[in-house]
């Protein structure tokens, strides 16, 4: 049957894995966007830049930091970077929320969109100025080099890519459990619906908003570190990805947590399958689906119709 369609099972599995990896990144990034949109009512256009910052922070820690502090031997490895980079970039997000976004909440959400879009341009511009657009390599950590060989179909599954899928699924699932099953998660859902009343009950909503933005940004940075060994670490890596992620958010439904995870992974897989069956369409398939969903269900697949 495979021969009939002119594709090999190896090709199919390989593309499904690529799709799953892309889907993992879509899921993590759209999850962060969904959390931020829910509480801040702002579409965080700097999300791609923050993802890029996460990757650059890891790369700088591994290759540049030693020279900067005059100790070329010093470098921060992949595993510490996986924790430190999201913390650092998340903290920078908190500063942005406290000093800039906070001033815009009483205005039309469009201003938040413009501010975050401007920030993305500034951040990406700075990194383009410093590092150019050619992209930097980031080594796969030693413990995850190599591949699992599936002898049956003669296919090698790179360990690092499997790790990326597993880590992203774990983070998405943990975030979902946190939001759906904990008290703080209930505050988050309530704050999405009616923040003024939640605050009148005694919850420090401004702090909740800051934390939500920090978490969303940290998720983007985490995705960035995961991506660093797979893609080139480049100032443009975020803007390439984020356009698809916005389409994912629209398809899943703005602000829906589960929706963004499921849609992210699902669309990654669909993209992968399209590469197998009709490769020419693989770059547009997400946008075609977006157009169809917008026509049939404007609130998105998981969004609440209002």
């Amino acid at each position: 049957m495979f021969e009939l369609l002119g594709i090999t099972p190896q090709g199919l599995v390989a593309q499904l894995l690529v799709g799953l990896i892309n889907g993992s990144f879509y899921a993590m990034l759209s999850l962060g966007l969904a959390i931020i949109f829910g509480l801040l009512n702002i579409i965080n256009f700097s999300h791609g830049a923050q993802y890029m910052l996460g990757a650059f922070a890891a790369w700088i820690g591994a290759t540049q930091l030693g020279a900067w502090i005059g100790n070329p031997e010093f470098s921060i490895g992949y595993w510490p970077a996986l924790v430190l980079s999201p913390l650092l970039i998340g903290a920078s997000g908190i500063v942005i929320e406290r000093t800039m976004l906070r001033r815009l909440y009483h205005l039309d959400p469009l201003y938040g969109l413009l501010l975050t879009f401007g920030l993305a341009l500034v951040i990406e511009g700075m990194f383009r100025h410093w590092y150019g657009i050619s992209g930097e390599n980031y080594e796969v950590p030693e413990s995850l080099t190599g591949a699992f060989r599936l002898e049956g179909i003669g296919l090698a599954l790179p360990k690092y890519r499997l790790w990326v899928v597993a880590a992203s699924l774990a983070v998405c699932f943990a975030s979902w459990v946190f939001i759906e099953r904990t008290k703080l998660g209930a505050y988050l859902r309530a704050g999405t619906e009616n923040p003024a009343l939640l605050q009148a009950f005694g919850v420090n909503v401004p702090l909740l908003i800051t934390a939500a933005y920090g978490y969303g940004v940290a998720l983007a940075a985490f995705a960035g570190v995961l991506a660093a060994p797979i893609f080139q670490v480049s100032p443009l890596m975020g803007s390439n990805l984020i356009i698809v992620v916005f389409a994912v958010v629209v398809i899943g439904g703005m602000g829906s947590i589960m929706g963004s995870i499921v849609t992210g992974i699902g669309l990654g897989l669909i993209e992968g399958l399209t590469k197998v069956f009709y490769a020419q369409a693989s770059d547009v398939v997400v946008f075609v689906i977006m157009a169809i969903v917008l026509l049939l269900r404007p609130a998105g697949l998981f969004g609440r119709e209002t």
Binding site: A186, E193, N194, Q199, A200, F201, V203
Partner: peptide
């Protein structure tokens, strides 16, 4: 700020009742 006032021991039932649709009754 609103959340500090609540902490002084004020309970509020808004006119529109303010039941959160995305939370269960017990939540």
């Amino acid at each position: 700020a609103s959340h500090r006032i609540a902490r002084l021991g004020v309970g509020y039932c808004p006119e529109e009742r303010g039941i959160y649709a995305s939370l269960s009754a017990e939540e």
